Simulated assay, not measured.
Amino acid sequence: MNRYFLYLVFLNMLSNVIIFVPKFLIQYRYDGALLSIVIAIISGMILMYLDSIVFARFPGEGLPEIIENRMRMPFKFILLGGFSIFWFTAGLITLLGYIDILHRFINPDLPKIFLMVVFLAAICFVIQLPTQKVVYLLEIVLILNGPLIIFIFFKAITSDYLNWDSIFEVGTHLFTLPKLTPIVVASYVFSGYTNIIIFNRLFKKKIKSINFAVILVVSILNLVTSFLIPIGFHGADGAQEYMYPWIMTADSIRLVYSPIERALFIFLMLYISITLLSVTVHWHVAFELIKGCYIKNTSKQKNWLVLAYFIGFSILAVLRFDLMNPELIIKFWLTARYFFEIIVVFSFFFFLRRRNP
Protein backbone atom coordinates (compact mmCIF):
# COMPACT_ATOMS: atom_id res chain seq x y z
CA MET A 1 0.00 0.00 0.00
CA ASN A 2 1.39 3.41 -0.97
CA ARG A 3 0.53 5.48 2.05
CA TYR A 4 1.78 8.76 0.54
CA PHE A 5 -0.84 8.58 -2.19
CA LEU A 6 -3.51 7.96 0.43
CA TYR A 7 -2.30 10.93 2.44
CA LEU A 8 -2.68 13.27 -0.53
CA VAL A 9 -6.26 12.17 -1.15
CA PHE A 10 -7.28 12.11 2.53
CA LEU A 11 -5.85 15.58 3.13
CA ASN A 12 -8.06 17.05 0.42
CA MET A 13 -11.09 15.22 1.80
CA LEU A 14 -10.54 16.56 5.30
CA SER A 15 -9.76 20.14 4.31
CA ASN A 16 -13.00 20.53 2.35
CA VAL A 17 -15.32 19.29 5.08
CA ILE A 18 -15.67 22.71 6.65
CA ILE A 19 -15.32 25.05 3.67
CA PHE A 20 -16.85 24.00 0.34
CA VAL A 21 -18.54 20.64 0.13
CA PRO A 22 -21.24 20.62 2.87
CA LYS A 23 -22.53 24.13 2.15
CA PHE A 24 -23.17 23.58 -1.55
CA LEU A 25 -24.46 20.02 -1.18
CA ILE A 26 -26.97 21.13 1.46
CA GLN A 27 -28.26 23.77 -0.94
CA TYR A 28 -29.21 20.94 -3.31
CA ARG A 29 -30.46 18.50 -0.66
CA TYR A 30 -33.87 18.26 -2.38
CA ASP A 31 -32.44 18.56 -5.90
CA GLY A 32 -30.40 15.42 -6.35
CA ALA A 33 -27.53 15.92 -3.89
CA LEU A 34 -27.47 12.24 -2.88
CA LEU A 35 -27.42 11.01 -6.48
CA SER A 36 -24.78 13.65 -7.20
CA ILE A 37 -22.59 12.06 -4.54
CA VAL A 38 -22.94 8.67 -6.27
CA ILE A 39 -22.01 10.16 -9.66
CA ALA A 40 -19.12 12.11 -8.14
CA ILE A 41 -17.72 8.98 -6.50
CA ILE A 42 -17.85 7.04 -9.76
CA SER A 43 -16.30 9.81 -11.86
CA GLY A 44 -13.70 10.64 -9.21
CA MET A 45 -12.55 7.04 -8.90
CA ILE A 46 -12.32 6.64 -12.70
CA LEU A 47 -10.24 9.80 -13.12
CA MET A 48 -8.01 8.82 -10.21
CA TYR A 49 -7.37 5.36 -11.62
CA LEU A 50 -6.61 6.64 -15.14
CA ASP A 51 -4.21 9.26 -13.80
CA SER A 52 -2.37 6.69 -11.71
CA ILE A 53 -1.95 4.43 -14.75
CA VAL A 54 -0.32 7.24 -16.71
CA PHE A 55 2.16 8.28 -14.04
CA ALA A 56 2.98 4.64 -13.19
CA ARG A 57 4.81 4.56 -16.54
CA PHE A 58 7.19 7.22 -15.25
CA PRO A 59 8.24 6.05 -11.77
CA GLY A 60 10.13 8.64 -9.76
CA GLU A 61 9.34 11.50 -12.17
CA GLY A 62 7.08 14.50 -11.89
CA LEU A 63 5.52 16.25 -14.86
CA PRO A 64 8.48 18.65 -15.39
CA GLU A 65 10.85 15.69 -15.73
CA ILE A 66 8.42 13.72 -17.90
CA ILE A 67 8.03 16.44 -20.53
CA GLU A 68 11.62 17.73 -20.31
CA ASN A 69 12.72 15.96 -23.51
CA ARG A 70 9.29 15.46 -25.02
CA MET A 71 8.15 19.04 -25.51
CA ARG A 72 9.70 22.22 -26.84
CA MET A 73 10.27 25.16 -24.53
CA PRO A 74 7.34 27.45 -25.57
CA PHE A 75 4.81 24.65 -25.16
CA LYS A 76 6.44 23.39 -21.97
CA PHE A 77 6.33 26.89 -20.50
CA ILE A 78 2.64 27.31 -21.37
CA LEU A 79 1.73 23.87 -19.99
CA LEU A 80 3.61 24.14 -16.70
CA GLY A 81 2.71 27.80 -16.23
CA GLY A 82 -1.00 27.12 -16.81
CA PHE A 83 -1.01 24.17 -14.44
CA SER A 84 0.79 26.18 -11.75
CA ILE A 85 -1.95 28.86 -11.88
CA PHE A 86 -4.57 26.15 -11.38
CA TRP A 87 -2.81 24.70 -8.32
CA PHE A 88 -2.07 28.11 -6.85
CA THR A 89 -5.74 29.08 -7.18
CA ALA A 90 -6.85 25.85 -5.50
CA GLY A 91 -4.70 26.59 -2.47
CA LEU A 92 -5.62 30.28 -2.38
CA ILE A 93 -9.38 29.64 -2.32
CA THR A 94 -8.95 27.16 0.54
CA LEU A 95 -6.80 29.65 2.46
CA LEU A 96 -9.27 32.51 1.94
CA GLY A 97 -12.11 30.33 3.17
CA TYR A 98 -10.35 29.33 6.37
CA ILE A 99 -9.21 32.89 7.09
CA ASP A 100 -12.85 33.96 6.82
CA ILE A 101 -13.81 31.21 9.31
CA LEU A 102 -11.17 32.29 11.84
CA HIS A 103 -12.20 35.92 11.43
CA ARG A 104 -15.87 35.12 12.05
CA PHE A 105 -15.60 32.59 14.87
CA ILE A 106 -12.33 33.29 16.71
CA ASN A 107 -11.59 37.04 16.64
CA PRO A 108 -13.73 39.33 14.45
CA ASP A 109 -11.58 42.31 15.49
CA LEU A 110 -8.42 40.76 14.04
CA PRO A 111 -7.81 42.02 10.47
CA LYS A 112 -7.84 39.34 7.80
CA ILE A 113 -4.68 40.79 6.32
CA PHE A 114 -2.84 39.99 9.57
CA LEU A 115 -3.99 36.35 9.47
CA MET A 116 -2.97 36.11 5.81
CA VAL A 117 0.54 37.45 6.51
CA VAL A 118 1.05 35.01 9.40
CA PHE A 119 -0.10 32.04 7.33
CA LEU A 120 1.94 33.12 4.30
CA ALA A 121 5.11 33.23 6.39
CA ALA A 122 4.68 29.58 7.35
CA ILE A 123 3.42 28.36 3.99
CA CYS A 124 6.09 30.05 1.87
CA PHE A 125 8.80 28.51 4.05
CA VAL A 126 7.47 24.96 3.73
CA ILE A 127 6.71 24.98 -0.02
CA GLN A 128 10.42 25.48 -0.73
CA LEU A 129 11.33 22.24 1.02
CA PRO A 130 12.08 19.10 -1.01
CA THR A 131 8.99 17.07 -1.91
CA GLN A 132 10.09 14.23 0.38
CA LYS A 133 10.14 16.54 3.43
CA VAL A 134 6.73 17.99 2.56
CA VAL A 135 5.19 14.53 2.53
CA TYR A 136 6.89 13.71 5.85
CA LEU A 137 5.24 16.77 7.36
CA LEU A 138 1.94 15.68 5.82
CA GLU A 139 2.27 12.27 7.45
CA ILE A 140 3.00 13.72 10.89
CA VAL A 141 0.02 16.10 10.80
CA LEU A 142 -2.44 13.46 9.64
CA ILE A 143 -1.26 10.92 12.21
CA LEU A 144 -1.57 13.46 15.03
CA ASN A 145 -4.86 15.09 13.97
CA GLY A 146 -6.64 12.26 12.19
CA PRO A 147 -7.76 10.31 15.29
CA LEU A 148 -9.10 13.46 16.98
CA ILE A 149 -11.09 14.46 13.90
CA ILE A 150 -12.51 10.94 13.65
CA PHE A 151 -13.43 11.18 17.35
CA ILE A 152 -15.38 14.40 16.76
CA PHE A 153 -17.23 12.78 13.84
CA PHE A 154 -18.02 9.83 16.11
CA LYS A 155 -19.36 12.14 18.82
CA ALA A 156 -21.54 13.84 16.22
CA ILE A 157 -23.02 10.57 14.95
CA THR A 158 -23.75 9.29 18.46
CA SER A 159 -25.07 12.61 19.77
CA ASP A 160 -28.58 12.75 21.24
CA TYR A 161 -29.15 15.96 19.28
CA LEU A 162 -28.81 14.19 15.92
CA ASN A 163 -32.29 14.02 14.40
CA TRP A 164 -32.50 10.99 12.12
CA ASP A 165 -35.92 12.02 10.84
CA SER A 166 -34.36 15.03 9.08
CA ILE A 167 -31.77 12.74 7.50
CA PHE A 168 -34.45 10.30 6.33
CA GLU A 169 -36.44 13.19 4.90
CA VAL A 170 -33.50 14.11 2.66
CA GLY A 171 -33.04 10.42 1.87
CA THR A 172 -36.48 10.30 0.27
CA HIS A 173 -35.02 12.45 -2.54
CA LEU A 174 -32.36 9.87 -3.40
CA PHE A 175 -33.60 9.35 -6.97
CA THR A 176 -34.15 13.01 -7.81
CA LEU A 177 -32.16 13.84 -10.93
CA PRO A 178 -29.05 15.84 -9.99
CA LYS A 179 -27.75 19.13 -11.31
CA LEU A 180 -24.20 19.94 -12.35
CA THR A 181 -23.18 22.02 -9.32
CA PRO A 182 -23.57 19.33 -6.61
CA ILE A 183 -21.73 16.83 -8.82
CA VAL A 184 -18.69 19.05 -9.30
CA VAL A 185 -18.72 20.04 -5.62
CA ALA A 186 -18.87 16.45 -4.37
CA SER A 187 -16.15 15.37 -6.80
CA TYR A 188 -13.73 17.90 -5.31
CA VAL A 189 -13.00 15.60 -2.36
CA PHE A 190 -11.11 13.35 -4.79
CA SER A 191 -8.93 16.10 -6.26
CA GLY A 192 -6.03 15.26 -3.97
CA TYR A 193 -4.95 12.62 -6.49
CA THR A 194 -4.02 15.36 -8.98
CA ASN A 195 -1.03 16.27 -6.79
CA ILE A 196 0.62 13.15 -8.16
CA ILE A 197 1.73 15.48 -10.94
CA ILE A 198 4.70 16.38 -8.68
CA PHE A 199 4.55 13.82 -5.87
CA ASN A 200 5.03 11.01 -8.39
CA ARG A 201 8.71 11.70 -7.76
CA LEU A 202 8.27 9.66 -4.58
CA PHE A 203 6.36 6.77 -6.16
CA LYS A 204 8.72 4.11 -7.44
CA LYS A 205 6.09 1.41 -7.91
CA LYS A 206 2.61 1.20 -9.39
CA ILE A 207 -0.15 2.19 -6.97
CA LYS A 208 -1.86 -1.00 -5.82
CA SER A 209 -5.58 -1.69 -6.07
CA ILE A 210 -5.94 -1.80 -2.28
CA ASN A 211 -5.29 1.95 -2.23
CA PHE A 212 -8.31 2.61 -4.43
CA ALA A 213 -10.48 0.29 -2.34
CA VAL A 214 -9.55 2.20 0.82
CA ILE A 215 -10.18 5.55 -0.87
CA LEU A 216 -13.59 4.37 -2.11
CA VAL A 217 -14.72 3.41 1.40
CA VAL A 218 -13.35 6.57 3.02
CA SER A 219 -14.81 8.84 0.33
CA ILE A 220 -18.29 7.39 0.82
CA LEU A 221 -18.05 7.93 4.58
CA ASN A 222 -16.60 11.41 4.13
CA LEU A 223 -19.26 12.66 1.70
CA VAL A 224 -22.23 11.08 3.46
CA THR A 225 -21.26 12.25 6.94
CA SER A 226 -20.16 15.76 5.94
CA PHE A 227 -23.45 16.22 4.09
CA LEU A 228 -25.98 14.51 6.36
CA ILE A 229 -24.68 15.22 9.88
CA PRO A 230 -25.32 19.01 9.70
CA ILE A 231 -28.82 18.22 8.42
CA GLY A 232 -29.35 15.89 11.37
CA PHE A 233 -28.33 18.60 13.83
CA HIS A 234 -30.03 21.63 12.30
CA GLY A 235 -32.90 20.14 10.31
CA ALA A 236 -33.42 19.69 6.60
CA ASP A 237 -34.43 23.32 6.22
CA GLY A 238 -32.37 24.88 9.01
CA ALA A 239 -28.99 23.58 7.79
CA GLN A 240 -29.06 25.76 4.69
CA GLU A 241 -29.18 28.93 6.79
CA TYR A 242 -25.53 28.63 7.79
CA MET A 243 -22.58 29.70 5.67
CA TYR A 244 -20.39 27.04 7.31
CA PRO A 245 -22.70 24.20 8.41
CA TRP A 246 -19.96 22.08 9.96
CA ILE A 247 -18.71 24.93 12.13
CA MET A 248 -22.15 25.29 13.67
CA THR A 249 -22.44 21.52 13.95
CA ALA A 250 -19.13 21.31 15.85
CA ASP A 251 -20.40 24.07 18.13
CA SER A 252 -23.41 21.87 18.93
CA ILE A 253 -21.22 19.02 20.16
CA ARG A 254 -20.30 18.91 23.85
CA LEU A 255 -17.30 17.01 25.22
CA VAL A 256 -18.51 16.64 28.80
CA TYR A 257 -15.35 15.17 30.31
CA SER A 258 -12.90 17.19 28.24
CA PRO A 259 -10.96 20.22 29.59
CA ILE A 260 -12.58 22.14 26.71
CA GLU A 261 -16.30 21.38 26.62
CA ARG A 262 -17.15 23.04 23.30
CA ALA A 263 -15.88 20.91 20.43
CA LEU A 264 -15.83 23.98 18.18
CA PHE A 265 -12.52 25.28 19.50
CA ILE A 266 -10.83 21.88 19.25
CA PHE A 267 -12.29 21.44 15.78
CA LEU A 268 -10.95 24.79 14.56
CA MET A 269 -7.51 24.24 16.08
CA LEU A 270 -7.23 20.85 14.43
CA TYR A 271 -8.23 22.31 11.10
CA ILE A 272 -5.64 25.08 11.24
CA SER A 273 -2.89 22.54 10.58
CA ILE A 274 -5.02 20.55 8.13
CA THR A 275 -5.91 23.63 6.08
CA LEU A 276 -2.43 25.12 6.13
CA LEU A 277 -0.99 21.78 5.02
CA SER A 278 -3.56 21.49 2.23
CA VAL A 279 -2.59 24.94 0.95
CA THR A 280 1.08 24.04 1.34
CA VAL A 281 0.70 20.90 -0.79
CA HIS A 282 -1.13 22.80 -3.55
CA TRP A 283 1.39 25.63 -3.56
CA HIS A 284 4.34 23.24 -3.41
CA VAL A 285 3.02 21.65 -6.60
CA ALA A 286 2.56 25.11 -8.17
CA PHE A 287 6.06 26.15 -7.06
CA GLU A 288 7.68 23.02 -8.49
CA LEU A 289 5.77 23.37 -11.77
CA ILE A 290 7.00 26.94 -12.20
CA LYS A 291 10.55 25.85 -11.35
CA GLY A 292 10.20 23.28 -14.11
CA CYS A 293 9.99 26.11 -16.62
CA TYR A 294 13.59 27.10 -15.88
CA ILE A 295 14.93 23.82 -14.48
CA LYS A 296 18.22 24.19 -16.37
CA ASN A 297 18.82 27.65 -14.99
CA THR A 298 17.56 27.47 -11.44
CA SER A 299 18.40 30.46 -9.27
CA LYS A 300 17.35 31.74 -5.86
CA GLN A 301 16.38 35.06 -7.41
CA LYS A 302 13.81 33.38 -9.63
CA ASN A 303 12.47 31.36 -6.71
CA TRP A 304 12.06 34.51 -4.62
CA LEU A 305 10.29 36.16 -7.53
CA VAL A 306 7.78 33.30 -7.61
CA LEU A 307 7.23 33.58 -3.85
CA ALA A 308 6.74 37.34 -4.20
CA TYR A 309 4.01 36.66 -6.76
CA PHE A 310 2.32 34.18 -4.38
CA ILE A 311 2.45 36.65 -1.49
CA GLY A 312 1.38 39.71 -3.46
CA PHE A 313 -1.57 38.06 -5.17
CA SER A 314 -2.71 36.44 -1.91
CA ILE A 315 -2.71 39.76 -0.05
CA LEU A 316 -4.60 41.42 -2.90
CA ALA A 317 -7.13 38.56 -2.89
CA VAL A 318 -7.82 38.77 0.86
CA LEU A 319 -8.39 42.52 0.54
CA ARG A 320 -10.79 42.25 -2.40
CA PHE A 321 -12.47 38.87 -1.91
CA ASP A 322 -15.31 40.09 0.31
CA LEU A 323 -16.14 42.87 -2.16
CA MET A 324 -16.87 40.33 -4.88
CA ASN A 325 -19.35 37.47 -4.82
CA PRO A 326 -17.33 34.71 -3.08
CA GLU A 327 -20.01 32.03 -3.43
CA LEU A 328 -20.39 32.61 -7.16
CA ILE A 329 -16.63 32.68 -7.67
CA ILE A 330 -16.16 29.40 -5.80
CA LYS A 331 -18.96 27.70 -7.75
CA PHE A 332 -17.47 28.85 -11.04
CA TRP A 333 -14.00 27.69 -10.04
CA LEU A 334 -15.22 24.28 -8.84
CA THR A 335 -17.05 23.75 -12.15
CA ALA A 336 -14.03 24.84 -14.20
CA ARG A 337 -11.81 22.61 -12.06
CA TYR A 338 -14.00 19.55 -12.73
CA PHE A 339 -13.83 19.86 -16.51
CA PHE A 340 -10.16 20.84 -16.36
CA GLU A 341 -9.37 17.61 -14.51
CA ILE A 342 -11.33 15.53 -17.04
CA ILE A 343 -9.54 17.13 -19.99
CA VAL A 344 -6.09 16.86 -18.40
CA VAL A 345 -6.46 13.25 -17.23
CA PHE A 346 -7.72 12.00 -20.58
CA SER A 347 -5.08 14.04 -22.43
CA PHE A 348 -2.37 12.45 -20.31
CA PHE A 349 -3.92 9.03 -20.78
CA PHE A 350 -4.00 9.20 -24.58
CA PHE A 351 -0.71 11.06 -25.20
CA LEU A 352 1.77 10.35 -22.42
CA ARG A 353 0.68 6.74 -21.94
CA ARG A 354 1.44 5.89 -25.59
CA ARG A 355 4.97 7.22 -25.43
CA ASN A 356 7.92 5.28 -24.17
CA PRO A 357 8.97 6.40 -20.73
Rank of each mutant, 00 (worst) to 15 (best):
K300C: 01
I26V: 13
V279N: 05
R355K: 12
T181F: 10
S15A: 11
E241C: 03
R29E: 10
I106P: 06
F119C: 12
L289K: 12
N69W: 08
V218M: 13
S43P: 02
F287S: 08
E261Y: 05
W304P: 15
P130G: 03
I37F: 03
P182S: 13
P74A: 03
I247Q: 08
I85N: 00
T335D: 14
F313C: 14
P259E: 07
Y161L: 06
I149M: 11
I315K: 05
I99P: 00
E241N: 13
S314N: 11
L6G: 07
K206P: 02
C293A: 14
Y193C: 08
F340S: 15
D237F: 11
L96C: 03
F55G: 00
F350G: 15
L255W: 13
F119D: 00
K331L: 15
R57S: 13
L162K: 02
V170S: 10
R354G: 12
V141W: 03
I311Y: 02
S43I: 11
Y244H: 10
L6M: 06
V134N: 13
D251F: 02
N107T: 12
S43W: 04
I78M: 13
L137V: 15
F105D: 08
V9A: 03
T94H: 07
T181D: 10
F313Q: 14
L305I: 02
S52V: 00
I106H: 08
S226L: 04
F153A: 14
H282C: 11
L120D: 01
Q128D: 06
R354S: 15
L276I: 10
R353L: 07
G312Q: 04
N356V: 04
Y188D: 12
E65Y: 01
L334P: 03
G32N: 01
E65K: 10
F332G: 12
T131L: 09
S273R: 13
G91N: 08
R57D: 15
R337D: 15
G171R: 06
I167V: 06
L80W: 00
M48R: 02
V185S: 13
K23N: 09
L63F: 05
L47H: 07
F346P: 10
I330Q: 14
L137G: 12
N356C: 09
P108V: 00
V217A: 09
K133L: 12
R29M: 08
L120N: 02
L305V: 02
S43A: 13
D237C: 03
S43N: 06
A40M: 11
Y257C: 03
V185L: 09
Y338H: 14
N195G: 11
Q132P: 02
K208I: 08
A263E: 04
L276Y: 13
S84R: 00
D109N: 12
F55W: 12
F10A: 06
P59N: 11
F203L: 15
D165I: 01
I18S: 03
Q240L: 04
F88M: 14
V285P: 00
L289H: 14
R70G: 08
F175E: 04
V17P: 00
V217W: 10
V285G: 03
R29A: 11
E341P: 01
F105V: 09
